[in-house]
Computed example of a mutant assay.
Amino acid sequence: MQRKKIIKTAILFSLSVLSFQQINAQQDPQYTQYMYNPATINPAYAGSVDRVQIFGQYRTQWVGLEGAPKTTHLSVTTPLTDTGLGMGFHFKNDHLGVTDQNSLAIDLAYTVNLNYDYKLAFGLKGAGSLLDVNYDKLHIYDGTDPITEKNISNKFSANVGAGVYLYSDKAYVGLSVPMILSSNRYNDKEYKIMNEKAHFYLMGGYVFDLNHEIQFKPAALVKVVPGAPLQVDLTANVLFYEKFTLGAAYRWDAAVSGLAGFQVTDGLFVGYTYDADTSKLKNYHSGSHEIFMKFELSNKKKRKVAPRFF
């Protein structure tokens, strides 16, 4: 029992240190069901919506492991005019170990028609975040370490992002960098506590009509961060009778997932995901959970034929 507690403490410390040491790592939160709100990682998606979308998502990762990540994301995406302009608003709280970060972001996107089937959207993102680090929660071995002498409160940083999004009624491909600027965070003594790197995302998916009642959608997401391992997510969802969604996902060398969703009303869709870890860390937690709700306000000018997969 004592050995397990020591291991958990060591892991907590490692997770926290990753947040403020000068290293290259993946820092953006990850979502298994990203395809229902691509605006999270690609601002150009705001140009593809034809009605107001309200999206809420909560992810608790590595349940049972002290200090594990917990992420809350709320967003509103809306068309501005009938000429292809769209805008998105995002709030995100990301909690990891002794760090807590709140972010606000605004997307602005514009869509052009390429041909009868395909459209291309361009998007820009502006974001600002406040970082808190509470060193008092750590078991400090060396109390004289200047980095941990004083907690960090509301440390502000700003960033910009961009993306492109090619889509039709059946397919989409997106390329984005939600946060372009690499930035360093310092404490009051000018010690570097965090080195944020740009994250590059490439995503794509397609909807196959198997028959009148069943649709199949494979999707993929590739994330590239300088100095960090390549991350690849492969997902397959099946929609039954425009009501029930079941699926599975695989995150390369990290996790396998089960996905489920239900179209409660014409405008309300809810979903749940369970991730089972496949890495060595699986022995110290009971998996990850993700829930989300997507609400679309009706557009009287455009009749909604079927629920959107993306």
Rank of each mutant, 00 (worst) to 15 (best):
T235K: 00
S176V: 08
V207Y: 04
G258N: 03
D233M: 01
A254E: 13
P218C: 08
L210M: 15
L246C: 14
F208K: 02
D145P: 04
D145R: 06
L166M: 11
I147R: 06
D209G: 08
Y165V: 08
G267P: 01
M203D: 10
R185M: 14
W252A: 12
I152T: 00
E196R: 14
N154T: 13
V256H: 03
I214C: 00
N154E: 14
D253V: 11
S183D: 08
V177F: 09
S257N: 05
V225K: 00
I193E: 05
E190T: 11
K197I: 07
L246I: 11
I180A: 07
Q215I: 08
Y165N: 07
G143R: 11
K189H: 15
V224M: 08
W252M: 13
M203Y: 08
T245C: 15
L239D: 04
Y274G: 01
Q263C: 11
Q263L: 09
M179G: 11
T144S: 14
N151C: 03
A220F: 10
K243N: 06
L230R: 01
G163P: 04
S257Q: 06
L239V: 06
M179H: 11
G261P: 09
S153D: 14
T273E: 02
V173W: 08
N184H: 10
L210D: 13
V164N: 07
Y172C: 03
D253E: 13
I147G: 04
R185Y: 15
G247P: 02
G267A: 08
W252Q: 14
Y167N: 09
A220L: 12
N211Y: 03
D145T: 07
N184W: 06
K243E: 07
A198P: 05
A255S: 07
V264P: 08
D209Y: 08
G163K: 04
G247K: 01
F216N: 10
D233F: 00
K170M: 13
V207C: 07
K223D: 09
S182R: 10
L210T: 14
I214E: 02
Y274F: 06
P178L: 00
Y165E: 07
A219P: 10
L181I: 12
G174S: 02
Q231N: 05
Y201Q: 00
S257T: 07
F240I: 03
F269L: 02
E190D: 12
K243F: 01
T245Q: 13
L246E: 13
D188W: 04
V222K: 10
